[in-house]
């Protein structure tokens, strides 16, 4: 016989994401899902952010990569609790992967948990993991056409970090166009221009994070 069903295929993911969210809320942890294409500077941003905070806020990190532990080692060397997830091929983190590592983090002690998603400008935006907000990084070496070519991530993110602005004078990139297109795709998006290398602009971003969790 025929059964009528009306199920969203991602319901299971959304349900686990909500479970994660409840746990984070109960533990008082603010969770940021950090997304970008490979190499835009997610781990670098975490390193500078952690240094800039100087322990004022207790930070934890979940690193998502297809394979390898390099990123987790970079965070670990700063004395920050970190868990590495290897997705084994999957192009994004999903709620269940996060759920499975929650016991490996000292959630009771943390104020903020950064989840560094797999480097990919498309898929991570489709999967909730239980975060309070999504933040994306676009490095200016990727070009100013990206907001209009990959609109979903710009639409899903609460903030856009434009990274590697120290390289501006070497490139023919129109940073104003990035800002304009991102804002028209997502009017309330917060935009920060930073260099993880020189530290320029990091202050504003870190101040904003502090206001969100206080």
């Amino acid at each position: 016989m025929k059964l009528k069903v009306a199920s969203k295929i991602l319901d299971a993911n959304d349900r686990i994401a909500q479970e994660n969210k409840n746990i984070f809320k109960e533990k008082g942890v603010y969770v940021i899902n950090l997304m970008s294409s490979p190499g835009a500077g997610k781990t670098s941003l975490l390193e500078t952010t952690i240094r800039n905070l100087g322990g004022k806020i207790k930070v934890g990190v979940i690193e998502g990569d297809i394979t390898g532990t390099d990123d987790a080692a970079r965070i670990d060397s700063l004395g920050i609790p970190v868990v590495q997830i290897n997705t084994g091929g999957a192009c994004h983190l999903d709620a269940n992967m996060i759920n499975e590592v929650l016991n490996d983090l000292p959630l009771d002690e943390l104020d903020v948990l950064f989840i560094e998603n797999v480097g990919n400008l498309v898929c991570p935006a489709e999967f909730k993991v239980g975060e309070n907000m999504k933040v994306m990084i676009l490095s200016i070496t990727e070009g100013h056409d990206k907001p209009l070519k990959y609109p979903l991530m710009f639409q899903e993110s609460s903030a856009l970090i434009i990274n590697k602005i120290d390289l501006k004078s070497f490139l023919d990139v129109d940073v104003e166009k990035i800002k304009k297109d991102a804002a028209s795709l997502n009017q309330p998006i917060k935009i920060f221009e930073v260099s993880c290398k020189t530290g320029e602009g990091i202050d504003n971003w870190v101040k904003w994070i502090q206001t969100l969790i206080s």
């Binding site: 016989m1 025929k2 059964l3 069903v5």
Partner: peptide
């Protein structure tokens, strides 16, 4: 959309 709408079962 990413929905299941109907299925045959026996």
């Amino acid at each position: 959309e990413l929905n299941i709408t109907e299925m045959e079962v026996f």
